[in-house]
Amino acid sequence: MPERTMVQAINDALSVALEKDPRVVVMGEDVGKNGGVFRVTEGLWHRFGDDRVIDTPLSESGIIGTAIGLAVGGMLPVAEIQFMGFIYPAFEQVVSHAARFRTRTQGTFPLPLVIRAPYGGGIRAPELHSDSTEALFVHTPGLKVVAPSTPYDAKGLLLASIQDPDPVIFLEPMKVYRTHRQEVPEGWYEVPIGRARKVREGEDVTILAWGAMVPVAEKTADAWAKDGVSCEVIDLRSLYPIDEDAIIESVKKTGRAVIVHEAPRTGGLGGELTALINERAFLWLEAPVTRVTGYDVPVPYFALEDAFRPDVRRVSEAVRQVINF
């Protein structure tokens, strides 16, 4: 089995989908001849041509708006927004239309649409290139939101998203685009939307994370293992729908939960997960559910991004708090 980075795995998924289904079109800014600013679509334009891999005008609302029309017209568009921080011009198309088409048309015009967007910080990018505003989309009924953290999951989740009859926001953590390689099967396989992945088994505390925070959670678990504390790490993968049962089962076992996300704290997904645990596992808790998150500030320019993003030190401190409570 070939070893691939996340960038290569996503490229492979797109290639497999384009090959399998003539309705699939890949569209966005620089996705064609240039192969994408991260080279995620490298080679696809040469292989599949201008009608399948489409360089669009620099026009986010136009990209998502026409992708909606393409989907209504029977295509399966996979639209790229170059960075999540640039998705806001298309926010109205996503919230007012993509999310509501099935309901509004009572299923007559479903909307099989995938919106890919690199997200999160950690790569020393300019302003607005490091946003993690997943909660905006999780809060919008009618959308599914996924964020893989490994090459294997990235390919499987992307194929599942393309196959899904409803709109999916597919978030790609730039920080881990190329940090590690993993065996990725050839051909079509799917990682189901709505299922979390148990990254490692543990007994004392559950760490919930997604995207580029998963490796931070793993390193924290490594550090605590040396001190005899066993952390269970769960990669949510799917932010809507959330795999509630996997989370509840884990927290009932460990009695403690630390939630890690890059997004600002207030109104972030961590609050939702805390409420979920309170509702379904309150009597099993040994300590208050704790969040380690970005701060409630605009994502700082990159000179300060390390101070903003949760790291091993901060997550370890949270683990210490819940263990010693």
Binding site: T66, G69, L70, V72, G73, E92, Q93, H97, T105
Partner: peptide, 25 residues
């Protein structure tokens, strides 16, 4: 026939997209 689009002008890109699908197909 799609349902009425309430937010102003947002249906114009949809029409362009549906026309695009028609052309591609």
């Amino acid at each position: 026939l799609l349902p009425p689009s309430v937010p102003i002008a947002t249906q114009l890109p949809h029409a362009a997209g549906a026309a695009w699908a028609s052309k591609l197909r």
